[in-house]
Nucleic acid binder design. Structure first.
Lengths: 207, 207
DNA sequence: AATCGCACATGACAGATGTCATCACCAACT
DNA sequence: AGTTGGTGATGACATCTGTCATGTGCGATT
């Protein structure tokens, strides 16, 4: 008869305190999982990981101070024994691609059934991957991010409602240059205008 | 010695399945609280409430089919014995105002510490209110929603990146009329342009 | 009856946006 | 050396946006 193995030790990172506590409570109901740390941002998570050496990190993407994607890359580099599961609201192929590039082994959406979280933790602990097949296919189909870094910076600001002149001053460019970049981004994304382009880019995870 | 009272019976409504399960797990760790139902949208919640007659409903705002605000008003009208706690991501004074108008007894933000959820459930069960004082003050200071219904409909679309002509066709108005409405909304909100106006209105909970 | 606010409209005009052509510089690649 | 792509620029022009004036109709209020 095989020996009873110890529990899977998990750290959870999530900037909304109540969701953080709730996710920890959810995982703690599993007999084979133990939550050994909670973090409210990426920086706290790194500190906790260095101290606790968990088997798995479950992290959101959009957090202050350090995004979950940056955190995943740091964990891959500094703590390769800790496997990372991204848990996010956003079904964005660009986010998925960047998550996998950053070394994440799982990418789970918050709108999935609750039981899938523990199952994902078990699977990545065993060395398997957990990615929604539909989202993976969409990431494949949508191709790579067509925006250059400058276009992204400018489009982001335009999507926030900033005028071309305002963006130009902020980035120390001429207004004509900003308009050229915006026009290029609008064309690449097949959008009607700058706001539409920003919306499309966000939906794809490119912004 | 006072008699041990029964547990507070709670239903949770939240469209993200994993967060729903996690919140239920969190509440179930409290010895004096029992989760007697979970719902993925407002309609399911109403059905569950009719059947279970819970003491408290904890609900998100942005859900498909029926928002938490509409749900709260329905619960006030049809099940006055069930007290409502709104649990949301958005610190928007307009949402708070509408929540209280709809009969909610609590308005809690998801970025608060996890322990506050159970405490809020206990307090509203006792007939007390739970509202963040800073948010209440902000709701008071920002005054009522200055937008007319038509302005709101048009501003929402403009904020999505739609052109004036497109909005005009969609709402069967002339383009000039749409521009007039937009100009009025921009002016009322002290915004620089339509995107800025939509952002401000969203932050206030008016959109 | 008079007034007010909202909904809806037309028209004129100034400023912003988006497109397009054209150009220079630089780093990376063939 | 030649090519490619990114960055940055100017200028011209068509279209869109936002403002403003002015107007009508309707329901609610005074």
């Amino acid at each position: 008869m095989r020996e009873v193995t110890s529990k899977i030790r998990v750290i959870v990172a999530e900037d909304q305190g109540m969701v953080l506590g709730a996710l920890a409570a959810l995982l703690e109901t599993e007999p084979d999982i133990a939550v050994c740390g909670k973090a409210a941002n990426g920086r706290e998570a790194l500190t906790a990981i260095a101290k606790q050496k968990p088997d798995v990190l479950v992290t959101d993407i959009e957090m202050p101070e350090m995004t979950g994607l940056t955190l995943a890359a740091e964990v891959r580099d500094r703590h390769p024994q800790t496997r990372v599961v991204i848990l996010t609201t956003f079904a964005r192929p660009g986010y998925l691609r960047r998550a996998l590039d950053a070394g994440a082994k799982g990418y789970l959406l918050k709108d999935r059934p609750a039981a899938e979280l523990a199952e994902a933790v078990r699977r990545v602990h065993r060395g398997l991957r957990v990615v929604d097949p539909d989202l993976a296919a969409e990431a494949w189909d949508s191709g790579p991010d067509p925006l250059t870094e400058r276009e992204r910076q400018i489009l982001w600001r335009a999507g926030e409602g900033k005028a071309s002149l305002e963006i130009a001053e902020e980035l120390r460019l001429s207004e004509g240059t900003v308009r050229n970049y915006l026009s290029e981004a609008i064309s690449k994304l097949g959008a009607a205008n700058r706001v539409d382009a920003a919306r499309i880019a966000r939906a794809k995870g490119w912004l």
